[in-house]
């Protein structure tokens, strides 16, 4: 059970980590190998705890920042039904962020600390949300491709070794399935509509295809954290495995829409049963991660503004609660 007592795990000199014996680490690994769930107050290597905090908080930040590119078209949604659907999706994202911050807090980091790290630029979030949503079709592309990629990542995480994270992911996955369907259905409507609508859909695919592929992270060969994360069952499949699966599943979906994937080297290999594709431009990925994507600055600014504008409100709520508590104590 996680209580505020866990904060103490984070306190203490980071330069002098507590001693971990080989026996402890072996016993821990044995539990992982036996598919046991690790819970908040169980013994765990410090590196396991730190990796999880990083991964879970990044995931949470992504949900929160992700509300912005999608929220961008809420006021302009072209029908009341679409407006309601998009609003429900954005609301789900806020909820998912909450579940994930909640899971991360079980590891001894506070919500305040995580938010501060996001706003200072220290913490990362998924690269995809640094791209703009320029047309209504982008909302369809985001639902279809971005949520599709996210689902591919998230379903295995329902079985990750850390209890609170896996339970949060089960909640998230239950709610996520409608997100991808609504995006694809939006694209279907556009592709079956006017020439202008079809062109809008193709343009959205052209701009979101490669950034969606980059969501799976760098190639396995260059990915530093992967091996240990796999051993600890925090990561269940490699970046390239998931990316390939996504491509194989998505290309036929694009064909059904009558859209062209923006890759002239895309071909189905009969022998391997997979699609081959052009090389990904990893320079773009690293630029975006480093803060030089189209929307990094404005995403953070909007989040910072909400935080700053809300400071007096949060303070007022706290002051009121303290006053009431004092009055009750005196009574």
């Amino acid at each position: 059970m996680y209580t505020q007592g866990l904060d103490q795990a984070g306190k203490g000199d980071p330069a002098a980590p507590r001693e971990e014996t080989a026996a402890q680490r072996d016993a821990f690994q044995a539990r992982i190998d036996a598919e046991e769930k690790i819970e908040a107050k169980d013994w765990m290597p410090e590196a396991y705890r730190r990796t999880l905090i990083r991964q879970i908080s990044q995931h949470a930040h992504s949900e929160i920042i992700g509300m912005q590119p999608e929220g961008n078209w809420l006021t302009r949604a072209p029908s009341l039904k679409r407006k309601a659907i998009l609003l429900a999706k954005v609301q789900d994202e806020a909820g998912h962020g909450l579940y994930l911050y909640s899971a991360a807090e079980t590891l001894g980091v506070s919500r305040d600390q995580m938010v501060a790290d996001l706003l200072s630029g220290k913490a990362k979030y998924s690269s995809i949300f640094n791209y703009p949503t320029l047309t209504w079709a982008d909302i369809g592309a985001v639902g279809w491709l971005v949520d599709g990629a996210a689902i591919m990542n998230q379903i295995p995480l329902c079985r990750c070794s850390y209890g609170p994270y896996s339970r949060a992911m089960v909640r998230v996955c239950k709610e996520e399935s409608f997100h991808q369907r609504q995006g694809y259905e939006l694209m279907l409507t556009l592709c079956g509509g006017t020439e202008e609508q079809k062109a809008m859909a193709q343009d959205a695919l052209n701009r979101f295809w490669w950034p969606a592929l980059m969501m799976f992270g760098p190639n396995d060969a260059t990915s530093s954290h992967s091996a240990q994360s796999m051993a600890w069952k925090i990561k269940r499949f490699s970046n390239d495995e998931l990316r390939q699966k996504f491509i194989d599943v998505t290309v036929p979906q694009a064909e059904f829409l009558g859209l062209t994937i923006p890759d002239n080297k895309l071909t189905f290999n009969e022998e391997t049963g997979h699609y081959e594709h052009s090389d990904i431009d990893w320079q773009e990925f690293f630029d975006v991660i480093a803060g030089n994507g189209p929307c990094n600055k404005q995403r953070l600014e909007k989040r910072c503004k909400a935080q700053d504008d809300g400071a007096w409100v949060r303070k007022a709520a706290r002051a009121y609660a303290d006053k009431k508590a004092a009055a009750e104590a005196a009574a």
Binding site: Q4, L98, S102, A103, D112, A317, R318, Y320, K324
Partner: peptide
């Protein structure tokens, strides 16, 4: 400065026990 953390337990249907669902922050 932070609002305190609360743990949340939900009974989803009558006849079942409350189950831990997660946490929220709140001022009161």
């Amino acid at each position: 400065q932070e609002w305190p953390l609360y743990e949340v337990f939900i009974r989803s249907r009558s006849g079942l026990s409350h189950r831990h669902a997660g946490s929220v922050h709140a001022a009161d």
